[in-house]
Nucleic acid binder design. Structure first.
Lengths: 338, 338
DNA sequence: TTGAAAGCGCTACCAC
DNA sequence: GTGGTAGCGCTTTCAA
């Protein structure tokens, strides 16, 4: 086995043909260039024999394209993001693209640094869950003609493609669902965040609650890193002093998991004492006793639209950037907890 | 904002210095080359001003290194792999490396293709969960002097670095734990697989069971893709006809989740009627009622060793490949289910 | 102190 | 039909 990788030059030399000829054959332009069948065969056989692999790095440099898309999620170990990553990956490969991923931890500085790093790498496009205050970097990317698609949340101040879900509407429906089931004292558990998805969920919830003339509390936890301890204690405190609460809406599944433990510790019966709905459905909601009602985001559809948007930008980018804004519907999966 | 990215040449031209000088300054070799402070300052300021970013692609081509490591997991949307991915990513960035990831689906053909694709990309190293029959591709990689580290499982026929856990020992202990708790009719639920981690778990379990002179059954499910429907039905059938089983050991958490549902449907009380232990601890085992006893793999330590091994190979590769084989211990987290 | 130039592997224009 | 060659952006040796 050769130590050094064989290059197109080696092939040309070994076979006594020119580099050009080899290149044409490799790139399927042999016919077009009317290269003789004999030479084509000779070259193809030799390539197979020595196991030649073209260098994508050299190709990238030459063509200015890398066939790599960056996927920047808030946290890749979170089920929501890793599922989307999985789908995206599949669709990317099908179209000849690879994915590089990274987690921003919702940290603006880290995200900026990552974006800047990838700009140097000739990546062809960016799929991003934007962190707070990232507007400028995104704007830069667009100015430099990188295709960018945001997801999960978006940036009102930047005219950029995005794929999101109907957070407001679904939160409204979730709250309405609790109200319909007879809840009179609602709680909305969320995290401190000025990001669109959270703001929208909150406002959807409140609108439903106000319309229905029920009492409600909004409980805003501070943002927790996965590495830190969860907000279990805070939720325990919160619920302990509020026995009157008979309907809880968790703004995201991670909060629900912690909250359910708190509720359980306090002996609050679900759905007898308190009914529960959570945003972001999860495999485990079906396993929990009782099964938890949840709002399901269409993961595969999100991924599909994400790639579809990305690919269309990749195709047409020479003629200017026309942002595409996709908003998808969620599904309320009613289960035993309500 | 410039449409075209500025290159080192543009800088040199604009400032009336040579490309070489700029390059030295960028790479911190200015002092060494005794370039005047005046020029250094001028160049540095200009770089900041125009927001110059060196092209990593060109650097890769020139230096033959990309500072990219590939992480090939069986399925990145699986919590076990995505958690490790997360840790690896963090450690990689700290050392100036980026991660490209992909999922093999445990499909040999897909894995081979992926490996081959990345060979063309000048990636600097491979971290892989090997699929069945992948020996040859791995061997090739090693021959071509790519640093390779396997994890989760390893290939007895290939002399390659790996980071794994004590599957056999932990499975033995898990089974022993059930026996100590008085179980007389054990079941080991696993998937069809000739891969080391599953074989080891199985043999550890059996050894303990045989030693203790208890009855046991091994139930081997066929491999399911995540996209397919889970093995719930099969497990239901299995347990239905075997009411005598009083201790179940699930070889992996995914099987446990399905199995617990089956057990629940059949009204088998845990731990009264049947005690349960699972391999691969999971956040939800703590949430489930009752909490499930599980064997926890040291995720962060695995990731640490993985990167440590990779980095050492990356450093020393010029002097030949000396495989490092790391085996880590697991922890049995005893909970209510046993 | 600084600069010229070779060359990493490849594509594609142009010449023969 | 086939070959020569410029050049993508960068590092680094050698020369000045």
């Amino acid at each position: 086995m050769a130590k050094k990788r064989v290059s197109i030059k080696d092939i040309a030399k070994a076979l006594g043909v020119s580099i050009t000829t080899v290149s044409f054959i490799i790139n399927g332009k042999a016919r077009e260039q009317r290269i003789s069948d004999e030479v084509i065969l000779k070259v193809k056989n030799y390539i197979k024999e020595v196991g030649y692999k073209p260098s994508h790095v050299a190709q990238s440099l030459r063509l200015g394209k890398s066939k790599i898309i960056v996927f920047m999620a808030e946290d890749i170990s979170n089920q929501f993001f890793s599922s989307i990553a999985r789908f995206i990956e599949e669709k990317a490969y099908k179209n000849g693209y690879k994915i590089i991923y990274c987690s921003t931890d919702n940290d603006t500085e880290k995200a900026k640094e990552l974006i800047s790093t990838f700009q140097m790498r000739n990546v062809d496009g960016f799929i991003i869950t934007p962190t707070p205050n990232i507007e400028e970097s995104i704007q830069d990317l667009i100015k430099e003609e990188f295709p960018v698609v945001l997801f999960d949340r978006w940036l009102p101040k930047v005219d950029c493609s995005h794929v999101i879900v109907e957070n407001r509407k679904s939160a409204f429906e979730g709250a309405q669902h609790l109200i319909n089931k007879g809840c009179k004292n609602l709680a909305f558990v969320t995290v401190q965040s000025s990001q669109t998805q959270m703001v929208d969920r909150s406002s959807g919830f409140k609108e439903a609650a106000r319309n229905a003339d029920v009492t409600f509390t909004e409980f805003e936890l501070k943002f927790h890193n996965l590495s830190e301890v969860g907000p279990y204690e805070e939720l325990l405190d919160f619920f302990k002093s509020r026995e009157e609460i008979d309907g809880v809406f968790f703004a995201t599944n991670y909060l629900a998991f912690e909250g359910l433990q708190a509720l359980d510790s306090l002996g609050r019966e679900i759905p007898g004492h308190v009914k529960v709905v959570s945003f972001d459905d999860h495999y485990f909601f079906n396993l929990y006793k009782p099964k938890i009602t949840a709002i399901e985001q269409p993961l595969e559809l999100i991924s599909e639209k994400l790639m579809e948007t990305m690919l269309s930008h990749l195709d047409e980018f020479t003629v200017g950037y026309t942002p595409r804004k996709v908003v998808l519907s969620n599904t309320l999966n009613e289960r035993e907890s309500s």
